[in-house]
């Protein structure tokens, strides 16, 4: 506030000058902050434009068949995105199926069951899972988790389901350790903290009166959670799940380690496959020729569009529960 003190004893004329100077600096600072805010919009626009420009050669060569074709042959320069899209969606879907019940379970544990002194440490520990860089999940998945699955879990599942039609092709061998299911399980661990922390946050928005009145008529903790808390926070939970889905779809390094990088669609969840992000991470620096590079950028564009839609829905849902909590 030194500027203010300086201005105090000054004469009338210099006071006007000071006020004008204040107004000018304020206008400059305001314009500066506004420019930075607009830059955030420009960034997203720039990402979209550069991806469209970069993928144009591939999209104009292959047209819509790019999305529908399973071919991926750098030698004959035939590229199609179907196998990576399939791998991306299947791994993320399985990850969601595994992570949602566990994530919500942890949130219930933290809000209803956990002794108060332990709440913060346990909540923090779960959130630390989100802080671990994805490459760590990758290296751990490849050297620790995949061999474990390969030698114990996968042979057992194959043996258990080999006589059951339908399931036997879903869990067909050989057990490589790496593949769709392993990637999905790693993804599930990675998105768990997102689901837990958002679920916990929206659980806290439930008015105590609602819960207390349910307890008052004799409901058990589970009944209160199932009939009052979850219905009340359904939109918020869905938002958290969509946010986690967005993360899973775009996750790169962890999946790159354990997916196996095979450009084919296979019925078995144990088979090596590929995802959009893993394909880009593996092949981009080695891609020769404009069409190859451009096809990889086109994969990136598809991933960008999918995640943008999912994340926009997630944010919209979370906004809705925010405005209700504020009201």
């Amino acid at each position: 506030m030194s500027a203010v003190q300086e201005a105090m004893p000054a004469a009338r004329g210099s006071r006007d000058a000071t006020v004008r100077r204040f107004a000018l600096t304020d206008a400059i600072f305001r314009a500066l902050t506004k420019a930075a805010a607009i830059l955030v919009l420009v960034l997203l626009g720039g990402v979209a434009i550069s991806l469209i420009a970069g993928s144009w050669p591939a999209l104009s060569t292959f047209g819509l068949s790019f999305v529908g074709s399973e071919a991926w042959n750098p030698v004959t320069e035939k590229f199609g995105a179907l196998a990576p899209i399939y791998g991306t969606i299947i791994t993320s879907a399985i990850a969601i199926v595994i992570a949602v019940p566990i994530g919500i379970g942890i949130a219930i544990f933290l809000t209803e069951l956990c002794p108060r002194p332990l709440r913060r440490p346990i909540g923090m520990a779960v959130e630390l899972l989100a802080g671990i860089p994805s490459i760590i999940y990758g290296i751990w998945g490849l050297f620790v988790f995949a061999p474990f699955l390969q030698t114990t879990v996968q042979p057992f599942i194959i043996w258990m389901f080999h006589g059951i039609p339908g399931l036997n092709s879903l869990f067909a061998g050989p057990p490589y350790g790496i593949g769709l299911l392993t990637s999905a399980m790693i993804l599930a661990i990675m998105i768990l903290p997102f689901i837990t922390s958002i679920t916990k946050d929206v659980f806290d928005t439930v008015p105590s009166v609602l819960k207390e009145s349910a307890y008052g008529i004799g409901c058990t903790t589970w009944e209160v959670t199932r009939r009052v808390v979850i219905p009340y926070t359904r939109v918020g939970i869905m938002g958290g799940v969509m946010l986690a889905l967005g993360r899973a779809l775009g996750e790169t390094m962890a999946v790159t380690f354990v997916i196996g990088n095979a450009h084919r669609i296979s019925a078995s969840l144990f088979a090596p496959a590929t995802t959009i992000s893993a394909t880009i991470a593996n092949e981009f620096t080695e891609a020769v020729g404009d069409l190859y590079t451009s096809s990889l950028v086109a994969l990136g564009l598809i991933l960008f569009i999918i995640t943008f839609i999912i994340l926009a829905i997630a944010r919209y849902m979370l906004l809705r529960i925010d405005s209700r909590a504020g009201a």
Binding site: G46, G250, F284, F304, T307, L311
Partner: peptide, 18 residues
């Protein structure tokens, strides 16, 4: 908020093109 959760590999592609 969308940028916050956007896949980081997309950012890599963007800067590659940029």
């Amino acid at each position: 908020d969308i940028l916050l959760s956007a896949p980081s590999i997309i950012v890599g592609l963007f800067v590659y093109e940029l």
